[in-house]
C-alpha cells in the first residue's frame, strides 16, 4: 500500500517522541551515577554538577556489596536457566510435536497446567521444599525450578509440528534413532531456540521472589537482590552507587538482547505467520 509522505512523517516523529519519553529515565539513571544524593532527589536537575567516577569506584571496591560476585551469580543463574530450559523444552516438545501416541494429549495437558499455575505463585511452598531437599542458599536450588517452562513446552510442540514431514520420513527410512533425528532437526530451529532462550534468560535475570527466598548469604545473591538490599538499607547511603550498579547491570541484558534481536524477529514472524 502506498502511504502519503505526510502520514509517514507524522507517525515517525510522534513515535520518536514517545521513544524519548520511554528512554528518558535511563539517561537519568546513568547520569544519576555521578550525582550526590542531594542532586538525585532534586529531579529538576538533569546534568550532574560535577563528573566524578567516585561512585563507580565505591561500587567496584565492594563497600556495600560485591558487585562482581553478584553480577557473576546473576549471569550464571540466568544463563543456566535460559540454556537449560530451552534444551528441556525442545526435547520434550520434539516428542510431543513429531510423534503421535496415546498419552500425548495428557502430557500436553500437563504443560497447560504448568502455564496456568506459575511457579511464582508457589514461591513459599517451593522455598520450604527446596529447603527440605538441602538446596537452600545454593544457586542450584534457584536454577532447577526455573528449568520447567510450560510455555516452552507448548511453544516447541507447535514449532516441531511445522517441520516438513518428508524430512522426518527420510531420516526414519535411513534408520536414524529418535535422538539422532532430534539432533539433525535442531539446527533448523535456530531462530526459535534463540528467541525462547532469550525470553527465558530475561525472566530468570529479573526473578525476584524465588531467589530472595532461597539465596541467603551475601556471596550467593544475584545482582537484583543485592541492589534491592542496598536500596532498602538506608536513604543516606549514596544512591549514585545504586544508579551505577543498575546501569552496569543492564549491560549484559542489552548485549544479549542486541545479539538475539534479529533472530527473535524472524522467529516470531514465522511463528505468528504459521
Amino acid at each position: 500500500m502506498k502511504r502519503s509522505g505526510l502520514v509517514r512523517t507524522a507517525a515517525s516523529l510522534s513515535m520518536l517522541a514517545v521513544a524519548l519519553v520511554f528512554l528518558y529515565p535511563f539517561f537519568w539513571m546513568f547520569l544519576g551515577s555521578f550525582k550526590a544524593n542531594r542532586e538525585i532527589f532534586d529531579t529538576s536537575l538533569f546534568w550532574p554538577l560535577k563528573w566524578t567516577g567516585e561512585y563507580f569506584a565505591i561500587l567496584f571496591r565492594g563497600e556495600y556489596f560485591s558487585f562482581g560476585r553478584s553480577l557473576l551469580n546473576s549471569v550464571f543463574i540466568a544463563l543456566a536457566q535460559g540454556i537449560g530450559a530451552t534444551l528441556l523444552a525442545t526435547m520434550a516438545g520434539f516428542v510431543l510435536g513429531v510423534y503421535r501416541f496415546r498419552s500425548r494429549n495428557l502430557w500436553l495437558g500437563v504443560g497447560v497446567l504448568v502455564v496456568l499455575v506459575p511457579v511464582q505463585m508457589m514461591a513459599l511452598p517451593l522455598f520450604i521444599w527446596v529447603n527440605r531437599i538441602g538446596l537452600f542458599d545454593n544457586p542450584v536450588g534457584v536454577i532447577l525450578p526455573g528449568l520447567v517452562s510450560g510455555l516452552g513446552l507448548l511453544f516447541f510442540t507447535r514449532v516441531f509440528r511445522q517441520i516438513p514431514r518428508e524430512l522426518l520420513d527420510v531420516a526414519r527410512i535411513e534408520g536414524a534413532s529418535e535422538g539422532r533425528i532430534f539432533l539433525t532437526v535442531l539446527p533448523l530451529l535456530k531462530p526459535f531456540l534463540i528467541a525462547f532462550g532469550f525470553a527465558h534468560f530475561v525472566l530468570a535475570w529479573h526473578a525476584h521472589v524465588i531467589p530472595l527466598l532461597i539465596l541467603h548469604s551475601d556471596t550467593a545473591r544475584t545482582l537484583p537482590l543485592s541492589l534491592a538490599a542496598l536500596f532498602g538499607s538506608s536513604l543516606n547511603s549514596p544512591q549514585a552507587v545504586l544508579m551505577a550498579g543498575s546501569t552496569l547491570g543492564m549491560i549484559p541484558l542489552l548485549v544479549v538482547f542486541g545479539l538475539a534481536y534479529p533472530q527473535l524477529k524472524s522467529a516470531l514472524q514465522e511463528f505468528v505467520a504459521s
Binding site: F26, F231, S246
Partner: peptide, 19 residues
C-alpha cells in the same frame, strides 16, 4: 524504535524503584 521501546522491559526492578 522497536528496540528502544523494549528497553524498559529489560530494566531491573531496582532500577524501576529509582525511576
Amino acid at each position: 524504535l522497536t528496540f528502544a521501546f523494549m528497553v524498559p522491559g529489560l530494566c531491573p526492578p531496582t532500577a524501576l524503584a529509582l525511576l
